[in-house]
Design a protein around this nucleic acid. Structure first.
Length: 884
DNA sequence: GATGTCACG
DNA sequence: ACGTACGTGACATCC
């Protein structure tokens, strides 16, 4: 196995940890009065790094004492430093004790600093082909960076690190890692108290090194430099620079008495660590430790169900409730195999791997019964799964997944075990623990292991039901659950099962056209660039555009030059290659995601795609769609829109019918803010963007609203919904920040109710910790009180946006439930297929189209009663493309 | 697995 | 001065 070495600069990280938690110094003491903040912080860092690196070998290096070869060389090395606080020193022995419990080597060497130990080992590790990570709080160690050695420097506290690779050093400083030593030589180091060349700081040093490569190079050329103060200083301080370089150079050949062979890391000694945490009073680590150490599952009673004992289930016939769980090993329940099931109540659990047993008459009767209530985890998944076996699931009472999502959208997991644990039910292991993860994930062969896991799942559902339903009622969300989300799950299951027919012939034809065009554009681009490269690689593309072709850099990303559309659009006039790249990107996106991706998703059995709507994912209450995502099929640009021609009705003589809410979010805004002017505009049926334009730009008549002015007003309207900032608006429509600010001020002046609402909703969020939608859907916003401006601002914008986006989601969900009822009640063949946030898409026999044209809008616009009217527009045609 | 990019509302 | 629009998912690249 590949060796991965983690080297930690003990003193430096401990010191960082001490100061990161310095303001909490008095909170962090154990029963004996020992300060523990540095130990705690060190442990946190250790856990994170071990998790991130997954090292096979580890060592923590410490400084040995006051004197080192550096102080021998220069008395005042690290002189003038403030005395180490006693509260810090007292913790050092315990950090070493912590390391012992972790089974991690630690080492110090007389006359050498921790850096030198690390430098030496990292060098040996590179030579031996290890991958090495160095953790330190000291930027100087970045000189150790190589292709195999990454240096992670702590920033802000100890848990966040900046990773230096040779590329990152190059990008940040424009230097190679070894040139960092020369830089330190030129600049000196005030914290280590040694001077370099007078008046030479980082900037000057980098410039010199870029020109001459090294300190030696600088001095070889110093005579030829033109006369300047800098030249004088360089000559005058030559000795200082030479000495500083030696001081800054980390030893790669310290006489260590440990070697790579001694560093094997195989995990902590849990007993020893438990004792240590107990001594330190680290409750949270104690808890984590015992969660992390896969405790064996608690024994649980269950009965293996067979053909011979099926009648035992008849005891539940007259029962009021029954727990049921159907295990499918992969996420996509439209295609997953069946691994088994569990059924029962009140601690009587019946388990089997054989889902055929569910087809037995008495079992089917229980599942489809309208009087025997079922408690499950993920009813939609269960319904679709059972449907594949030809079984209906009737009368679901409690869906643990759905309820726990509603209670807190933040901690939603799709794993029953993790979810149960979040609600303090710890007897159920996670699927990852029992089944494994990644390629190793598999249903256990061992019946005992698998069956007890399934039995535990039922036990968890049963145990959590009363508690969670009580919380739901306390939070006024019982109605949301009973009247919206639960029926919604059934409707969604039906839509998913129905699926949408996709004409693969159309897609394939489009695909070959796209491929042809792509290779043409590709050749043009290569010619314009003068070389071949991977256009899909932002890294290579950035190199070509900004280094080879020297185009101006407009925006940078974390890792390099940004090549996003807005950047490329600005560059397009300067070089023809840019327009071609944009074209290439557009087509390649359409082809890979929507032609090839969609073709992959077509079920060969019925030539349809069956998406899965994720009902318990978004923070606002919207749905999301995966596998394939049918909520982002292109529409804005004609090129992509053509993809919709491949979405066709599943029967001859049928058509696609679509209805969408017009401006639903702005209508919701008008409703919940109660703003008179905004409400009036909708009541009068005005063009809302034009109306806003007239108001904020103070235009006398509708004739004065030019398309451009309307576009700007539209952006302001959107901005308001998103929780506006002047900067955001200015970026969006390309105006100055000041102009944007004046637009916003004007908006709030004209719509004062909106202003009051925005102020109040943020205040409410701060006071109660959450915001809610018209259907009482909650979103908790813990960051609303965050110290960081950025975090807090984000939470504030979210507080403004969520009630709007979320209420719109509530409305269309209600409409969908009513719609499905009406289709059935009216005896229509029309089928609801898709939901795209504010629109519903159906397929129907041509004859039913006139019916739908009346029925769908009337159901949608009467779904809820708002203070403003809801408006719905409809379209239809032979394909989704034509329903426009 | 993270990152950048781009498709949608 | 902070550094930004809200909510999603899929793909390709590169480590």
């Amino acid at each position: 196995m590949a060796k991965k070495l983690l080297l930690i600069d003990g003193n430096s990280v401990a010191f960082r940890a001490f100061f990161a938690l310095h303001n909490q110094l008095e909170r962090f003491t154990n029963a004996d009065g020992l300060h523990t903040n540095a130990i705690y912080g060190f442990n946190t860092m250790l856990d994170r790094m071990i998790k991130a690196v997954e090292p096979t070998d580890m060592l923590v290096a410490f400084d040995a004492g006051k004197t080192t070869f550096r102080t021998k060389m220069f008395d005042d090395y690290k002189g003038g430093r403030a005395k180490t606080p006693g509260e810090f020193s007292e913790q050092m022995p315990y950090i070493k004790k912590l390391l012992d419990a972790y089974g991690i080597q630690h080492y110090e060497l007389k006359d050498y600093e921790a850096d030198d130990i690390i430098g030496t080992l990292a060098g040996q590790a590179d030579a031996a082909g290890y991958t090495t990570t160095v953790v330190t709080g000291d930027r100087d160690l970045t000189q150790l960076t190589t292709d195999q050695t990454t240096v992670a420097v702590t920033v802000k506290g100890v848990t966040e690190v900046e990773r230096y690779t040779p590329e990152h050093v190059q990008e940040k400083l424009g230097l190679t890692p070894t040139q960092i030593i020369d830089m330190k030589g030129l600049t000196g180091d005030t914290s280590d108290n040694y001077p370099g060349v007078t008046k030479v700081g980082e900037k000057t040093a980098i410039k010199l090194l870029k020109a001459y490569g090294s300190i030696e190079g600088v001095y070889e050329n110093v005579d030829g430099m033109k006369k300047s103060k800098m030249k004088e200083h360089l000559i005058e301080d030559h000795d200082l620079a030479t000495r500083a370089k030696v001081l800054a150079t980390i030893k790669r050949d310290a006489p260590l008495t440990v070697g790579l062979a001694d560093l094997n890391y195989s995990g902590p000694d849990v007993d020893q660590l438990t004792d240590f945490y107990t001594e330190m009073g680290f409750q949270s680590f104690l808890k984590k430790l015992h969660v992390a150490t896969d405790e064996p599952a608690k024994p649980i009673d269950y009965t293996v169900l067979t053909r011979d004992n099926l009648t035992q289930l008849d005891q539940f016939k007259d029962g009021k409730q029954l727990d049921f769980y159907l295990e499918m090993p992969t996420p996509n329940y439209h295609t997953s195999a069946f691994a088994g099931f569990a059924i029962g109540a009140d601690g009587q659990w019946f388990i089997s791997r054989d889902v055929e047993l569910l087809l037995a008459e008495n079992v089917q009767a229980l599942l489809s019964s309208q009087t025997v209530k079922k408690d499950v985890f993920d009813m939609k998944r269960t319904m679709v799964g059972l449907n594949r076996l030809g079984i209906k699931l009737g009368a679901v009472d409690f869906d643990l997944l759905l309820v726990s999502y509603l209670l807190d959208t933040n901690d939603n997991s799709n794993d029953l075990g993790s979810l149960a644990e979040q609600h303090d039910y710890t007897e159920l292991q996670s699927d990852e623990t029992v089944y494994g993860k990644g390629v190793k994930r598999a249903i256990p062969d061992d019946d005992q292991v698998f069956f007890s896991h399934l039995a535990h799942k039922l036990a968890a559902i049963a145990a959590l039901k009363p508690k969670l339903l009580k919380e739901l009622t306390e939070n006024e969300m019982a109605g949301l659950y009973d009247d919206i989300e639960k029926p919604m799950a059934t409707v969604l299951a039906q839509m998913e099962m129905a699926g949408v027919s996709v004409d693969s012939g159309t897609l394939k034809a489009m695909g070959s056209q796209f491929k042809e065009r792509l290779s043409e554009i590709e050749q043009t681009i290569y010619q314009e660039a003068g070389e071949e490269f991977n256009i899909n690689s932002p890294k290579q593309l950035g190199h070509i555009l900004f280094e080879e072709m020297k185009l101006p850099v407009i925006k940078k990303t974390k890792t390099g030059y940004s090549t996003a559309v807005d950047v490329l659009e600005k560059l397009a006039p300067q070089a023809p290659i840019v327009a071609n790249i944009l074209q290439y990107r557009q087509i390649s996106k359409i082809n890979s995601t929507y032609v090839e991706g969609l073709l992959e998703a077509i079920h060969s059995s019925d030539q349809k795609v069956h998406t899965r709507y994720l009902q318990t994912l978004t923070q606002t209450g919207r749905l999301s769609s995966v596998d394939p995502n049918l909520q982002n099929i292109p529409v804005r640009l004609e090129e992509g829109r053509k993809i919709r021609q491949a979405f066709v009705p599943s029967h001859a003589g049928w058509q696609i019918f679509s209805s969408d809410y017009s401006q639903i979010e702005l209508r919701v805004l008008a409703h919940i803010t109660g703003d008179h002017n905004l409400q009036q505009a909708f009541k009068d049926g005005e063009d809302i963007h034009a109306a806003t334009a007239m108001r904020i730009f103070n235009l006398p008549s509708a004739a004065d609203v030019t398309p451009n002015i309307r576009r700007q007003a539209k952006a302001v309207n959107f901005g308001i919904v998103y929780g506006i900032s002047d900067y955001g608006l200015s970026q969006n429509i390309g105006i100055t920040r000041k102009q944007a600010k004046s637009f916003i001020d004007a908006y709030f002046r004209e719509y004062p109710g909106v202003k009051t609402y925005m102020e109040n909703i943020v205040k409410t969020a701060r006071e109660q910790g959450y915001v809610e939608t018209i259907a009482h859907r909650r979103r908790y916003l813990p960051d609303i009180k965050a110290k960081g401006f950025n975090q807090r601002s984000f939470a504030e914008r979210t507080a403004m946006n969520t009630p709007i986006q979320g209420s719109a989601a509530d409305i269309i969900k209600i409409a969908m439930i009513k719609m499905q009822d009406r289709l059935k009640a009216e005896g229509l063949k029309a089928t609801m297929l898709l939901q795209v946030h504010d629109e519903l898409i159906f397929e129907a026999p041509k004859e039913e189209i006139p019916v739908l044209e009346k029925l769908v809008p009337s159901v949608m616009d009467s779904a809820v009663k708002l203070d403003v009217p809801l408006k719905v527009e409809s379209h239809f045609g032979d394909t989704w493309y034509d329903a426009k």
